[in-house]
Computed example of a mutant assay.
Amino acid sequence: MKILAYLTRDVLQHTVAVSFTLLVIIFSGRFVKYLAEAAVGNLAGDILLPVMFFRLPGFLELILPLGLFLGILMAYGRLYVESEMVVLSACGVSPTRLAGYTLVSALLVMALVALLSLLVTPLGAARSSALLDDPETSQGLQTLAAGRFQYRKSNGIVSYAERIDPDSGVMHSVFLSQQSAAPGGGTRLTITVASEGEIVLDSTTGARYLELRDGYRYSGQPGELDYEVVEFERFGERIPEPEGGIRSVPRVDARPTRALLESTLPEERAALHWRLSLPVTVPIVALIALSLSRTDHRRGRYIKMAPAFALYLIYLVLLTKARAAMEEGAGPLVFWAVHLLYGTLALGLLYGDTLRRRWYARRARGVADASA
C-alpha cells in the first residue's frame, strides 16, 4: 500500500502541475482572442468573464487526459532515471502490478473527466449560450452602441442607434452604412435607415439576424444617378460570426446527455459518443505513458516526450475524424475502432518486451535441445 500511495501521489502531483500549466496557456490564448471580439463590438464586455467561466469545463475535459499522460511520463521517467524502478522491480513489482498501480490514478482522473464531459460541460455550454443569445438584457450581444457611430473592420459597416431600450433590447433610429466594390469598378454605397431594430435568434440554426422595421434602403454608386431605393416594413440581415470566435462552439454541445441518449440525429449521436469516448481515453493513454516512460539516467526522463506527445495527438485527431464521419452517417463503430486500436497498442507496448524475451528463451531452449 505504501508503494501504491507513493506512486499515486507522485503521478497526481505531476498531473495537476501539467494540467494547470496547460489550462493557463489555453485559457489565456482564448481570453485574448475573445477580448479582441469585445474590442470591435462583437461581444459585450460584461459577459466575457462569465462566458469564459462556463467554458472552463470544456477545456478541462480535454486537458486532464493530456495532463495525466505527460504526468506519468515525467513521474515515472524520474523513477527510472534515479533507479527507483529497478529497486521496485527487484522487490517483485511486475509490469502488471505497476500497471495496476497506474490505473488507480487513471481511474480517479477518468471519473473526473466523465463528470465533466457528461454533466458539467453541457451545462456550462448551455449557460454560456443563454448569455450569448439573450438580446433583452444588458449582457446580450448588441451589434450597435447607443448614441455613437461605430465602425466594424470585419465587414466595413458604420452603424448608429440613437437609443437602445435596456429592457427589450430594441434599438431606435437606426442608421447603417456599408461600402462595397461595384461590378463595373468603383465603390457602391448602401445606406439603411429604420425607425426600429432588434437582434433576433433563429432557434433552429442558432444564427443571429438584425431585424429592422419601418425604414428605407438606398443603394448606388456615389456620383451616379442610378440609385436603388427600397421601402420596407421589415428587413432582416444575418449577422456574420467570426470563424473560431466565441460563438463557434456547436450548439449540440449544449444539449444535455439525457437528450442525446434519446436522439436519433447523426450529429447528436456523434456528440454522445464523443462524450463517452473522452473518459475511455484516460486508462488507455495511462498505459501507453507507462510503457513509454522506460528510460535510464543516460538518456534522461524527457527522451520520449516528443514521440509520446505525437502519439497522443494522433489519437485525438482520429477521434475527431471519427466524430465527423459519424455526423455524416457512419456508425458508432468508427469511434470504438480507434479505442480498440490504441488499447491494443497500449497492451503491446506494455507486454511486448516480456513476450519477446519469452519467445527468444523458448527458441534458445529449442535449439539447445535439438543440438543435444
Rank of each mutant, 00 (worst) to 15 (best):
L66Q: 06
Q150W: 08
A126Y: 07
I157L: 14
E196K: 12
T102Q: 08
S129N: 15
L107R: 01
L123Q: 09
A106V: 09
L68E: 13
S195M: 13
S89Y: 08
G100E: 05
L108Y: 02
G169E: 06
I191H: 03
L107M: 13
G185S: 02
N155S: 08
R163L: 01
L141K: 02
L189Q: 11
G71K: 01
V86W: 11
L103A: 03
V120F: 13
M85N: 12
T205M: 07
V113G: 03
A114G: 15
L66P: 11
V104Q: 04
V120M: 10
I164E: 12
A99Q: 09
L88A: 03
R188S: 02
R127K: 11
V93W: 03
T187G: 00
R127E: 13
G169F: 04
I72C: 02
Q150I: 10
L132E: 08
A125H: 11
S177K: 06
V93K: 00
R148E: 15
C91M: 14
E136W: 00
L68Y: 00
L116D: 05
P65M: 08
T143S: 02
S177F: 12
L201M: 10
L70I: 10
R127W: 03
M74W: 05
L88E: 03
V87G: 00
S105H: 01
S168N: 09
T187M: 03
S138I: 14
G124M: 11
L112A: 13
G197M: 08
M85G: 03
S180G: 07
A207L: 09
I199Q: 01
G185C: 02
V170S: 07
V120S: 02
A146T: 00
A114S: 15
V170Q: 15
V81D: 02
P135Y: 00
Y160D: 07
T102G: 10
T143G: 01
A125N: 14
V86P: 01
A99W: 09
D134Q: 13
A111N: 02
Q178R: 13
S168F: 12
V87Q: 00
P135H: 04
S195H: 10
E136M: 08
D134P: 14
S168W: 12
L107S: 14
M74K: 13
A111E: 12
L119F: 13
V81G: 01
G185Y: 10
A125D: 10
D134T: 13
L107I: 08
L201G: 01
Q139H: 13
Y101A: 06
V93E: 07
G92D: 08
D167A: 07
D202F: 06
Y80N: 09
V200F: 04
G169R: 02
L115N: 08
S159P: 04
L118K: 06
D202A: 05
L123I: 06
P166K: 07
Q139P: 00
A182H: 05
S117G: 01
Y80H: 13
I199R: 00
L131N: 05
T143Q: 04
S195E: 15
A181N: 03
I157H: 13
L108W: 10
L189W: 15
D167S: 05
T205E: 01
F175Q: 15
M171L: 12
Y160R: 14
T204C: 05
S154M: 08
T192S: 01
E198C: 01
